[in-house]
Amino acid sequence: MDLVVQGIVRAAGLLASGDREILEITLLSLRVSGGATLISTVIGVTLGAAVALNRFPGRNIAVSLINTGMGLPPVVVGLWVTLFIWRSGPLGDLGLLYTPTAIVVAQVVIAAPIVTGISLAAMQNIPEKLRFQILSLGAGRARYLALLVREARLPLLAGVMAGFGGALSEVGASIMVGGNIRGYTRVLTTATVMETGMGNFEVAIALGFVLLVVAFIINYVLTSIQQRIRS
């Protein structure tokens, strides 16, 4: 138990001193997972809207696939992304493996289905009457979509938060496609795994703490926006 206490004390010390490496790791985590969330939001909201607002053969299969994708195991994503982007893979010429971009790609694969699934449910929840009303008032396609997104913004933001949480917290894919390279692809989760393996528990505790605080701040900001819209 004293190790935990010691760990927390040293973690606080590390954070208070503004440890440069922890700061850099945190910023990289934010950049990578934030970027992945942004891309996932564009893909997810578009795809979610497309599936929610259209009727087409095999639609149930598509929806089931999206819902399954919401629970994709990060290690499986990591493995498949690796197979695609390593030198002998179909995208090998891009030289993407062990780069921050590779982590973004993997996290998009993880987060995009989450955003898509929640967007789909959100858009489908908009009463059909309202949709016809917007159309009958002569709105163009772009305006129609913009109004629907506006209408569903509460659950859509929840989808973005869930996607961000999925991206920021996963470790399996990041370690496989990023390689946990110091000062380059080492993010909060992979650093935590490594420090734990090396027996540096106080650093691991500090990193875990930062991860939680970052997640909280981002979610607090998004929630504030979300709740302000409602009131």
């Binding site: 578009t46 795809l47 809207a49 497309a50 607002l53 259209n54 396609r141 772009a142 979509l145």
Partner: peptide
């Protein structure tokens, strides 16, 4: 509609 999405 689907066309716009596809193009985007």
């Amino acid at each position: 509609m689907a066309g716009t999405v596809r193009r985007a």
